[in-house]
């Protein structure tokens, strides 16, 4: 009985973890992409440089969501609280 409650709580927690972890990076990536488009519109000749920097920084922001995902995955597949 307690085991199934722990499982249910873990699954809910995993969902919440990914959901919450996606909020911040979503806003951040939107900001970054918007600014990059603005920069390209203003100076189309540096598009390549802007694109490279944008991709790199997007991947950094992506990593924050991935941390949430790692927590979620360990809750589902490697949960220390269920036997």
């Amino acid at each position: 009985m307690t085991d199934s409650i722990v499982s249910a709580a873990s699954v809910i927690a995993a969902g919440i973890a990914v959901g919450l972890a996606a909020i911040g990076p979503g806003i951040g990536q939107g900001n970054a992409a918007g600014q990059a488009v603005e920069g390209i519109a203003r100076q189309p000749e540096v598009e390549d440089k802007i694109r490279g920097t944008l991709l790199l920084s997007l991947a950094f922001m992506e990593a924050l969501t991935i941390y949430g995902l790692v927590v979620a995955l360990s809750l589902i597949f490697a949960n220390p609280f269920t036997s």
């Binding site: 992506e62 990593a63 991935i66 941390y67 995902l69 790692v70 995955l73």
Partner: peptide, 10 residues
């Protein structure tokens, strides 16, 4: 380590 691991596993 978490960044690389998480991205590839995801």
């Amino acid at each position: 380590s978490f960044r690389l691991f998480g991205n590839i596993l995801a």
